[in-house]
Write a protein that binds this DNA or RNA. Structure first.
Lengths: 228, 228
DNA sequence: CTTTTATGATAGTAAAACTATTAAATAAGA
DNA sequence: TCTTATTTAATAGTTTTACTATCATAAAAG
């Protein structure tokens, strides 16, 4: 109710016109999150979104070149927000081990509520990130998109987490590989728990983020503490 | 040159008509692998494929309902083949630790040649698996597709690898979660090495499968050997 | 009060995704 | 061998998606 709303700034322009600055833009963001969550990215179209917000395809195209760039925007927003949230939640924790543990809790639990954001439904966005985020980079345009800075938010978050790993063990040889692996696993395991349960011991319940965090901590601390 | 060609049998029918049984079917498989590898799955269409094989869209639709099912077929074929290959390469290795180590080599190196298959270009298919395999399950139809058995080959492979984990440490609590995590990581790390190098220590060279294997072995053995 | 800018309304194109119909080729049965 | 099913291919659609262009109007800025 009285949390200060944070303005998330992205380091790139996946958009043509900043949607944060207009009422129509904000409706595009808000309703696209609802619709993509409901229909999945493949079934989501600008036409359906236009109908939903009582506007036109042409108007939406003035904000985003295509639906892929809109997804880039949404996912980047999530990473930027999560990066801030991790920083905030791990601030002032002296013990590096405790700090990383806390960070893992945050990245796995980021779906559960969060009133800090006004027009963005973070838990719906988190579900989108679970199912759709990897489609952002798994394309033939990945190198161009990378040049345009579309993955900076994700890289920054991974880099922050990698530094926590190095704070525990400066000699660990694969901090970034380890972090990118568990970042992806954080989503996969929740997805598997719900849809392909034979691929994981984690159960598809409300507690699956907690169980996922436990598994990931096992894994990360085992790796970082490994005898060479 | 004189390796016996193996007929891979899939446990489901992603196809309408078995492409292995006709000349046109085999051309569809062979050329779709080439085209998807070249264009990426999003840009790949049945029209382009039809042109490529001097046939028509309608003819291709008699084999596969849509391009998603074709992808399911290709990816399943890869998992079934890889499962056989892992089994073959780990056969008669008594030491469970050595067996898992060998298995990790196989799943990370599966892109490098393999003449065992006649009309299927396994190294192109492996590149497709790296970039497109997760799109097979990251859809709103995942539960229906799962009921139709589309993921059985992947699950079987993961289960075999999980059993190797339990052979090393029967008390390890997350064998399937660990294996599904490293299976996905095996592709992600190769992809990151090539396109998003700041997310991993693995370098995008010809040796990236070897380096990935080293990283994954570190991780897996650390987890499995962990002091509780 | 004028000019820029944003949105809306309308219409259109090109390609993708899929379907229906018919023709030709092949195999099976009498 | 001839007829009749059946399979496969070719043609020609339809519908939907992904966009683009144009113009009118409303609102905001100068």
């Amino acid at each position: 109710m009285n949390t200060t709303s944070i303005k998330i700034n992205l380091s790139h322009k996946a958009y043509l016109r900043d949607p944060e600055l207009t009422e129509l833009g904000q409706r595009i963001i808000k309703e696209s999150i609802r619709l993509i969550d409901e229909l999945g990215f493949e079934q989501f179209t600008f036409r359906k979104l236009a109908t939903e917000i009582n506007s036109t395809e042409a108007s939406i195209y003035r904000y985003f070149e295509n639906k892929h760039k809109l997804l880039v925007y949404l996912v980047s927003w999530h990473w930027a927000w999560l990066d801030h949230f991790v920083l905030f939640q791990t601030n002032n924790i002296a013990d590096p081990r405790e700090r990383l543990s806390r960070a893992i809790d945050v990245i796995t639990a980021s779906g559960t509520d969060n009133p800090a954001t006004l027009h963005i439904n973070e838990s719906a966005l988190y579900r989108i990130v679970i199912s759709e985020a990897s489609k952002v980079y798994l394309t033939k345009e990945v190198d161009d998109d990378n040049k345009d800075g579309y993955f900076l938010e994700y890289k920054r978050l991974c880099h922050h987490l990698s530094e926590m790993v190095l704070d525990i063990n400066p000699d660990y040889p694969y901090p970034h590989a380890l972090i990118s692996t568990i970042m992806e696993a954080a989503h996969q395991q929740v997805f598997f728990a719900e849809h392909l349960p034979s691929l994981t011991e984690i159960r598809g319940t409300q507690r699956s983020p907690v169980e996922t965090a436990t598994f990931l901590k096992h894994l990360v601390f085992a790796a970082v503490d490994q005898k060479r």
